[in-house]
Simulated scan of single mutants.
Amino acid sequence: MEDNEIYVLKASGERVQFSLDKLRSSLRRSGADEKLINSIIDVVRDELYQGISTKEIYNRAFALLKRKKSIFASKYKLKKAIYELGPTGFPFERFIGALLQYSGYEVKIGKLMKGACVTHEVDVIARKNSDYIIAECKFHSDEARKCDVKIPLYIDSRFRDILSYQKIDPPTEGWVVTNTSFTRDATEYGTCAGLYLLSWDHPKGDSLKERIDRLGLYPITVSTLLTQREKQFLLSRDIVLCRQLIKDDFYLDHLGITDKRRENILKEVNMLSNY
């Protein structure tokens, strides 16, 4: 059976045609070379069947990458790692704040700002030169859930209320950030209203996944060596980036990690951070 005759089941329940190009692209993003990519594709292709879930395909490719080199597996699991920032949205807010901070912005998280009508709690406030961003972060633990048009509508009204009050020093940009995707209506409204929309796959060329890969700002949850408990401990200490753990590696001492394992973890996060 040809690859283009295989239909796979997405997390949303939608059946879509299997795309070899998408699999190859995601494997390339992990840093794997063409020889390894081709060998993984050969294995996955042999195991395809009608109705196979995208999760099964991901798990197989992930296992093959991890067996070869853990750094490849870590980058490959980026999307899943973003979901692991949950179940609350606060670590995701800190993650977005950290992305902006490492891009040269002065960042504040969860601050109150007065509007003409009411006071608003703003997830992320970021300043750099003349750029003054206020961002609302929408975290979804269910990857099948998208941000619909109600989200930018709501955030646009908050942004306008703040602008109406903050006349002397007004924000220059209103952002809507999500770890999933926007519906078409949400994207169209956001563009029309002048909001900046940032999601896993939007905007093309500067999406969340592309920013992370380009800057080497991977969340701590991409680690294949840290346990879930250890990741949650680090997140509770506001360590959301691999790069932050390099600077604050003393937190590993609190976890009772052996010297050898500590060495391997720091080697992994250094490689992910492009150090």
Rank of each mutant, 00 (worst) to 15 (best):
I151S: 06
L112H: 04
C192K: 14
E106I: 12
Y154A: 10
D123R: 12
Y132S: 10
G174N: 05
M113W: 14
L112G: 03
V122C: 02
T119H: 01
D148S: 07
A144P: 04
L208C: 08
Q166T: 04
R184K: 08
A116H: 06
D185Q: 11
S207Y: 12
S157V: 04
G205A: 08
I133R: 00
Y165L: 04
H140V: 06
T187L: 12
I168R: 14
E121P: 03
R160K: 05
S199K: 13
V124G: 02
M113S: 11
E121I: 14
T180V: 14
A116I: 00
C117L: 08
V107F: 09
D148W: 04
I151E: 08
V177T: 05
S103E: 15
I133T: 07
P171H: 10
W175P: 09
D131S: 09
S207Q: 06
Y105M: 06
C147Y: 00
L198M: 06
K128Q: 15
K209V: 15
N179T: 15
S164A: 15
L198Q: 05
K204I: 13
S199P: 03
A186I: 06
R160L: 03
K111M: 11
E188L: 13
P152C: 09
R158E: 10
I162D: 03
L112M: 02
E188K: 07
L208K: 10
S130M: 08
E106M: 05
C137A: 12
K138D: 02
R158H: 05
R160V: 04
K108N: 07
V176A: 03
T119N: 06
T187H: 07
D131Y: 00
Y165P: 04
K150S: 13
V149N: 00
K108V: 10
D185H: 01
V122G: 07
N129A: 05
E136G: 09
G110M: 08
S141F: 05
K150N: 14
L197M: 15
S199M: 06
R184D: 15
G104C: 05
G115Y: 12
